[in-house]
Design a protein around this nucleic acid. Structure first.
Lengths: 104, 104
DNA sequence: TTGACATGCAACCATTTGGTTGCCTATTGT
DNA sequence: ACAATAGGCAACCAAATGGTTGCATGTCAA
């Protein structure tokens, strides 16, 4: 889970996920197009995404195809974000109450 | 939004959010208890959480109270994670199809 | 078969990050 | 008044991060 959070912390990597979300199964060179980064930098980002299991690849001839795996993202939502949504309203009203108490 | 992702990337900071989720409105020293880190390190983490708007503070005398703000977490869920859940199943079946094609 | 194309590997670099120590300031209880 | 308590500030440090360049390897097409 830590891997996933770390992988998502970088805007370039999130934008790579966006690109794969728009069009799945792209090659490395395809994913490089229009980016202000060298191919090697993109490779490094993709490796981190693979290690976090956010991207799956397989080689077809000399090309390497990249597929988005949305499962870890979903798990962040289920296992982590939902925990903080329970009690969101009570936390906020508690905050409001305390902030108001400040002015007494 | 980038600030929030960056803030969430560190396990110590996520655990501070957990602590505030368990008990809201803690002081700095309270949040330090039982952690293998100096007070100053915790302060730095809390500053990052504040800048990402995940934690709100206010001073009461010589104490500084920390409150969890769950709104940015909720927004990550709404504005980011949900985007990838739409089409999750189609992405997965596409992936499966491609992986099977590999063995032909 | 050989040149062009797609990717991999490794060394290197600057900046950011996560932490420390040492000291300073402000508030509170006795 | 003053010692103890709660927190702030700044300099410093090692390691991680995000990027580069240069070169090597594997595959396809003419």
């Amino acid at each position: 889970m830590d891997d996933v959070f770390k992988a998502l912390a970088d805007a370039s990597r999130r934008s790579l996920l966006d690109r794969l979300h728009a069009k799945n199964g792209q090659t490395l060179n395809e994913l490089c197009e229009g980016l202000a980064m060298t191919r090697q930098a993109v490779t490094k980002h993709l490796v981190i995404l693979e290690e976090a299991n956010l991207v799956t690849t397989y080689k077809q001839g000399r090309e390497k195809l990249h597929y988005l795996n949305p499962v870890p993202i979903h798990q962040i939502g289920e296992r982590w974000i939902k925990k903080f949504e329970r009690g969101k309203l009570t936390a906020l009203s508690e905050l409001k109450r305390q902030l108001e108490k400040r002015d007494e």
